[in-house]
Simulated scan of single mutants.
Amino acid sequence: MSNEMPKGATLAKNRDGLINEADLEKIKLQNEKSREVIEQNNLLKKQDDAEAMLHNSKILNALSRSLVKFFFSKAGFIVCVIAYISFNVCLHYRFGDEANFYIGLVDKIGLFVIIFILGKFLKDNISLLMEIFKK
């Protein structure tokens, strides 16, 4: 810190010199303007957050709807069953008796992926729904 005075400043001789009504009014006005600007910025941020949540929920709903339709449609089910059967046949042809380990591994990974994808979208949709009810 330096002991230099700002340009245009004067030394106050007493307490009354420190309390200048015009300066206090200026400071109060600046504080009010600053509060208004801060409140306006906060409102804009909240509005942007709400719009982003709405946009994300729309994307999430569309994606989860398409994934659920794929997993539970006849064509998706048939494609998954045919791919699973052909994969099992290829593993048995390639590895013989050792294929049981790999088939079990593929079963667990596939089940994990299906549950993870569907569960993630279900959890996200429920949390978004709860956020909507909070507001």
Rank of each mutant, 00 (worst) to 15 (best):
F87M: 14
K74S: 02
N20G: 00
S2Q: 04
G17I: 05
K120A: 10
D23R: 14
D48M: 09
A12V: 08
F121S: 08
S86E: 04
N31A: 10
S86H: 04
H92T: 10
L128N: 09
N31Q: 15
Y84I: 08
H55D: 11
S127N: 11
E39K: 13
K134F: 09
K7R: 06
A99R: 00
D23Q: 09
G104Q: 05
A75K: 09
S86D: 08
S64D: 13
K28F: 09
I115N: 04
F87G: 14
F95H: 05
V81Q: 02
K134P: 03
E51V: 00
R65C: 02
K120V: 03
G104W: 12
N3P: 01
M1L: 12
F71E: 05
N88Q: 04
N125R: 15
Q47F: 04
I59G: 02
L11E: 06
M1F: 09
D48H: 08
N61F: 09
D107P: 01
K135N: 13
L44R: 02
G110C: 01
N42R: 13
Y102A: 11
K28Y: 08
L60S: 03
E21L: 12
A83E: 04
K33T: 05
I59L: 11
L24K: 14
G119I: 01
Q47L: 12
L67C: 07
A50N: 02
K108S: 10
F70D: 05
I126F: 10
L105W: 15
M5G: 01
G119M: 03
F116S: 08
F133S: 14
V113I: 14
G96V: 02
E21N: 06
S73A: 01
I132N: 06
K120R: 04
I19M: 06
K7H: 10
F112E: 03
F133I: 15
K108T: 13
L129A: 10
N42E: 03
N88D: 04
N88G: 11
S127K: 11
E39N: 10
I115G: 05
I82T: 11
K28C: 05
A83D: 02
Y102F: 15
G8R: 00
N56I: 14
N20S: 00
L54R: 13
G104V: 00
A52C: 01
E21Y: 05
L67T: 05
F72C: 01
D49N: 03
L118Q: 01
N31P: 00
A50Y: 00
P6G: 02
F112Y: 12
I126Y: 13
K135Q: 14
N41R: 15
V113C: 08
L118F: 06
K123W: 10
A75W: 07
H55R: 13
S86C: 10
D23E: 15
M5K: 13
L24A: 11
Q30K: 13
R94K: 09
R94F: 05
Y84S: 09
T10I: 03
K69N: 01
I85H: 01
L44C: 02
R15E: 10
L60T: 12
E36R: 11
R15I: 11
G17W: 02
K58T: 15
K45I: 12
L111Q: 08
D23N: 12
N61W: 06
C90K: 09
I115T: 15
I117G: 00
R15D: 14
E32H: 07
N3S: 15
Q30S: 06
L43R: 13
K135I: 14
K74C: 01
A9Y: 14
A50H: 05
I109C: 08
